[in-house]
Amino acid sequence: MTEKQTTTSAAFFATLKRDLLIAFKKKNDIVNPFMFFIIVVSLFPIGISPESDRLTEIAAGVIWISVLLASMLSMDNLYRSDFEDGSLEQLLLSPHPLFFLVLAKNISHWLVSGLPVVLVSPLLAYMLALPEEAYGTLVLSLLLGTPIMSLVGSIAVALTVGLGSRGLILAVITLPMSVPVLIFGTLAVQSTLNSQSPLGYLSLMLVMLSVSVSLAPLASAAALRISVN
């Protein structure tokens, strides 16, 4: 009966493909966080000062905080609808390791909500008068940081997906866990601005990313099992 069983990689890619397909069909999953990010960043020059000296000072922090907030907005899409329509149970009952299936969902989530934000960040950096030499560091730090936020946020969403009214609890769990990413991300950009090498901070973020990739899906998988129980 099991001779036609799929390989884990086939199940992984099927899950990745399905989640991307759902995201492209529900366009607001992609557009909402992206628009939110652009709008929040644009508010700062209006609210604080359009002077480029002051903007340069806060640019990295503003972009990073807006990225955090935008990622909160899209987090709930990760497991919510799957929980409601029963797809999550099917995922849990797969013979394949849940680690890889959860990882596929996280990767899809990052491709849809994290990557667009990374790609548009140089434009917003220009708007905030961030000097050109820091663009590379900013994009690189976001490239390393946004997947960490998807992976870590996934744990919180998995824990709370069974709750009826979640309100702010998702933000309360996720945002404190994102603080290290925020610190190293902004420090990397700042050190480029001070003509120092950002490599130390970036490699720390790379370490954090590797740890998240290898451990966070395990935690998400365990949390999902608890949530459907």
């Binding site: 009966m1 099991t2 069983q5 399905r18 759902i22 069909k25 529900k26 609808s81 799957d82 409601e84 329509d85 029963g86 797809s87 149970e89 099917q90 009952l93 013979p95």
Partner: peptide
Amino acid sequence: SSLLYIGHRVGVSKV
């Protein structure tokens, strides 16, 4: 791999 479960929530994504 021998089990197939269909619950109240049938596991069909509406999208």
